[in-house]
Nucleic acid binder design. Structure first.
Lengths: 338, 338
DNA sequence: TTGAAAGCGCTACCAA
DNA sequence: TTGGTAGCGCTTTCAA
């Protein structure tokens, strides 16, 4: 609508001075700046996006590729999209959605057309087709999640192995010697990168501590409450006294229900720790100790890395693992001495 | 990367001919077109997005504003985002996410900067701040959902009133005279535009049919299973024999569990119809008759209206209600003659 | 500290 | 059916 020359005229300066005053890329006297700013304000000026993309070197847009799969856990997914968007806006960037079946096409399209400055990759699979593509494109890609082959890639994620290990450690320290991991639906161990990492962290920690560690999925392709409850019942029968929960709020609730159905109190009879949840595990009937997955932590870092990748000193490729944090809510205690 | 003049040189034609061949806005001889197309293919040419936005009149981007509220039902929300994105891509449009707290700021920003050609408005509240803004902007906005004051707006949605009425009609025809609507969490009746419409359609239909209609919310701010089950128990005590379910899959499941707990079989003892669900109500333990909310229907139409709004003959503003469809799965029958 | 002007890579008008 | 070219509205270099 209103263009830069109108602002220049209103402020009695040249076009270039307006541009520099707004970008801050060249010093502008305070008086001039003030005049320009009020002209901008009055006229409601906003730089034309297309002209900026063409003349400048930045589009101020990041693409976000997020394949929607049937087994996607919607609330977590939404939380990551939101966190990414907020982090981007904080840096004056917008988010362009790439949800096409073939995410690879979209990535290539937006990269080759110069529509975006970088790509944020969500919901990473262990063997993700977007990995190979990211290496070819001439704009940076940041992976939120860690694919199996991440050579040369920049990845950000919670340190799920450490998170699971931390949970086992806490249970061990409390005295538990038989612990169980209630995971995700079986298919998530193929489609997603982090459930296997939780499992691996859990199993490694159990081996290291010489505690007995049981693992069960929660059905599939989507969570099946009955499967969850059966898993809990089986584990109780096997002598499990410490539970590690990785999964959605529905699976969490089902575990607590099944424990209640068996008359096991938390933490008096059994201990429970939630790992990698994006919801609030303190809001259950029994507030649960948690090692949460905080979308903002990953997304802020991812956007930060994307920004730095555009700068003159891009960061080295590599995996950035965010250390887990433990939030106690009283759901862990010594095992019952029956 | 590779620019239009390289394509022109490779194909032995002028720049403008390349442009016209690709846009189809001017006839190009088959031979020339073929040469150009293979040059494009070989060189991997893709028109620069910024240049296109600046020179052309279209950005090929729609904004999608989707406020994330705590009570947002994530799966449905995701389904709409996905459906919108797919519909847009089909028209060669990309989707730019607007999730900022103050959606109004984002709308104004992308409109004033010419970043997008139009705005799709999701998750519409009865009194939505985006309504006033949409009227000011000089790009078209399409609302997916119907705000209270929709004068001059273009809105698209399932005809929820008709959907609820259809459910009541079917129950009435089957012989039910006391029916109950299990709705959404209470807060949704203030934050969202469609739960009140379902309720209104239900109550009107009940009045028209002279059947007794009970209504209950499902707790709040988020669904509370215990509240759902209590609502069902109360309704059974009040003699309800036909249930209309509007809500998430968790609420549906809770209703079926509570019915089972009371020993009421579907459809022998009670009848159940799901209204406005985006998931598959045929996949429950008891397959449910459904009047579904199909995101693709609304989103395809919304994108279509957005496209037409950019054309030379923009559609009249108005509310486009999509007629409900009934899918029978055997969960409706005559009431038990006890 | 500021201004003038040369592009950025397209689209679409005017000619041929 | 095709080509030349004037912008589109900025950013940034070169000058002052």
């Amino acid at each position: 609508m209103v263009k830069i020359d109108e602002v220049a005229r209103a402020a009695g300066v040249s076009i270039s001075t307006v541009s520099y005053a707004l970008s801050g890329k060249r010093p502008v006297s305070a008086a001039t700046r003030t005049r320009i700013e009020s002209a901008v304000e009055e006229l409601g000026y906003r730089a034309n996006a297309g002209a900026r993309m063409l003349a400048g070197s930045r589009t101020q847009i990041f693409a976000l590729t997020e394949p929607f799969r049937p087994d996607t856990f919607a609330p977590t997914h939404m939380a990551f999209v939101l966190a990414t968007s907020i982090a981007a806006r904080r840096q004056d960037y917008d988010i362009l959605l790439l949800t096409e079946e073939d995410a690879a096409d979209g990535m290539r399209r937006v990269a080759d057309s110069g529509l975006v400055d970088g790509i944020l990759v969500l919901d990473v699979a262990p063997a993700d087709r977007r990995v190979a593509l990211a290496r070819q494109l001439d704009i940076p890609s940041i992976f939120i999640g860690v694919p199996d082959d991440h050579h040369g890639l920049t990845c950000v994620d919670l340190d799920f192995e450490a998170a699971a290990a931390l949970a086992v450690d806490r249970l061990f320290e409390a005295g538990h010697r038989v612990v169980g991991l209630i995971g995700h639906p079986a298919i998530a161990y193929e489609n997603s990168n982090f459930p296997p990492r939780v499992r691996a962290g859990f199993e490694d920690a159990c081996a290291r501590r010489e505690v007995s560690g049981l693992f069960r999925t929660t059905g599939g392709p989507v969570v099946e409450i009955a499967v969850v409850r059966a898993a809990v019942a089986d584990m109780l029968a096997e002598g499990v006294t410490g539970f590690v929960l990785h999964g959605g709020d529905d699976a969490h609730a089902a575990v607590l229900e099944e424990l209640a159905a068996h008359g096991r109190a938390v933490p008096d009879d059994v201990s429970v720790i939630s790992v990698g949840a994006t919801f609030d595990p303190a809001s259950f009937s029994v507030p649960l100790d948690a090692i949460p997955l905080i979308p903002a932590s990953s997304c802020d870092l991812a956007v930060d890395l994307a920004m730095r990748s555009l700068g003159s000193t891009p960061p080295e490729p590599g995996v950035h693992l965010i250390p887990p944090t433990y939030r106690a809510h009283g759901s862990v205690g010594p095992p019952a001495t029956s």
